[in-house]
Design a protein around this nucleic acid. Structure first.
Lengths: 155, 155
DNA sequence: GAATATTGCTCAGTATGCTGATTATCAGTA
DNA sequence: TACTGATAATCAGCATACTGAGCAATATTC
């Protein structure tokens, strides 16, 4: 049997595990209570006001059934509002609130610090290489997961 | 705000997401029903018969509270047995069953295929580079997660 | 325009992964 | 030996992720 350290799947799990722990630690230290997933959703909604949940899920590669709970919790925290769409009564339009914008602004330095901490064992060039290789592997495997990344479409 | 593609945390999540999907697809196609986490636990127990749950968790970097459920499900499937330790009545000794060994043998080609599929967008050298950089980043961040990798100790 | 297919969202169920607490046991020491 | 601290396992609770199903609404096709 191959050693775990030779298994990309194992390494993927470990790196993600560390990345989440680092994110949560930096964010908590900055006085915020937001998960990586919640942060990505909030940032995407700020950039795309009025986006519906399916499009949001595609933008950040979340499963459509996961996004429901994530949005629930962001609404619960008062960082988002979720309103029925006027154009399509099936859809919900997501808008960031003022509190959401304040949270995003305040949390950004901690998020940036977390990204650096995740790569702290690597040189600048190694970090860039790692990201480049991850992007390439992800692009090739995008369609293999149930929640592939999707470009936003104009409506 | 930095683009998601420049965030190691986002890339880590995406790569892990694809890795799990690929693993499950290859394993199901081979006629087995085992998650990546269950596979790693089963393989580690085969290599270390009689291991206790905390040591197992350290070997594969699982949280101690997660391992309980994973072992539960492997026992449920008849691939493991969990017996009280004679040396330490707090601990449980884990042993792989014959069915567990058969499953491991049968599933190995699918697991190997999955590892290749995860890297299918990369050249041989790029895949090796990616694994090397992940190992280095993980080594530097090992202690940052609640479930760091731990060497097994002789008892 | 009616039948059909598709889409947006939600839900129930399952599996990680974590925080923090509890229980039983063990190990070291006063 | 009694006390203290540490340890193995489990539990309750919460947050991703996924499968598969269902409902309501929209889009397509005949």
């Amino acid at each position: 049997m191959r050693d775990n350290n030779e298994m990309p799947g194992h390494l993927a799990r470990r790196f993600q595990q560390i990345a989440v722990a680092v994110f949560l630690a930096e964010v908590e230290e900055a006085g915020f209570d937001l998960t990586p997933v919640q942060y990505a959703a909030l940032a995407a909604i700020k950039t795309n006001p009025g986006i519906d949940q399916v499009t949001l899920a595609g933008l950040i590669a979340y499963d459509r059934t996961t996004i429901t709970g994530v949005v629930d919790r962001l609404v619960q925290k008062g960082l988002l509002v979720r309103n029925p769409s006027s154009r399509d009564r099936r859809a919900r339009e997501l808008q960031i609130t003022e509190a959401g914008k304040r949270t995003l602004r305040g949390i950004t330095p901690a998020v940036e610090a977390a990204q650096r901490t995740m790569l702290r064992g690597l040189t600048e060039k190694e970090g860039a290489d790692l990201m480049r290789l991850l992007r390439k592997a992800i692009a090739a495997g995008n369609e293999l997961s149930r929640a592939p990344l999707r470009e936003a479409e104009l409506r």
